[in-house]
Amino acid sequence: MIRLFHKKLVIVSGKGGVGKSTLCAALAILARRKDRRPLILELTEFESIPTVFGSDLEQAKGEFVADGIRSTGFDFEEAVTEYLTLHLKVRAVSQILHKNPVVKYFTRTAPGFKELVYTGKIWYMAQDMARRGDRHPFDFMILDAPSTGQCLEMLRVPGVVSDMVRVGPIMRETRAMEAFYKNPDESGILLITLLQEMPVNEVLQMSSDLTEKQGLPVDAVVINQIVPVDEDILDEKARATCPEGASEEAWAALQQAVTDLKILHDAQETFRKRLAKEIKAPQVELPLILKSPLSLKDLDRLATTLEENFE
């Protein structure tokens, strides 16, 4: 079993379009079953989590999207004001400061600043959650993180800053942040991929950067949309003879389908093995579900599959 639900934060990342939001939703459902109070966090104003749970409506930040599950987007400007307030102590000053077009320009474009605000805010939420204990509306955070490259860049920033600033409150803060993200008892990372070339390459690259260069814990690689192939049917003999009275057209289709399945099976196996060889973290597989959007029942099903692997 992979230990996950004792943590404060789980970060989910992978190439765009592989199912990050779906995995976050299924994890949240599972967290509920484990009696945690999950919050799914997206680092964008355009939230997609409410849609995953079937709500098309504009939904207020931090509200329930499903039974006991909260989700929230991220208002960058608001977070910057908060960040400045934290350091300047007076909110009014930070608001004025932040309205200054020059400062605003910097906060948007200065390399690393956005990432620092993101990682800082998430860290702060996790600390706050621990401090406030039972009175807090959530006690388990799931981060629907940006895709691989951006996510790496983001997680790199606290370390870079703490190396550069040698003294003072910012140094102390970024050190604490760095320690938090590196501590497997507090924070974890799930990488998600499909068994296709580009998503697999990105996940391999990300995993080696995270673990080797940054010392961050990868808890598992989730392989999404597996097409189940019944290996027993792939042998040549079984399909050679068409039963008497069967439709020849159907039998030809069946033979073609098996040929295709065999190729698909081999491709899936190759990628699976590559992932296993190059990433130490365990693999967890989720089946392909042919529905769009997924229903709550489908998400429940995925949560049940996850339950066999995570505790």
């Binding site: 350091h87 400062v103 910097f106 200065a110 620092l116 920033v157 550069m164 600033v165 910012i170």
Partner: peptide, 11 residues
Amino acid sequence: VLFKIFEAITG
């Protein structure tokens, strides 16, 4: 504070 942060990140 602000520019210290920027400077820290960007050098």
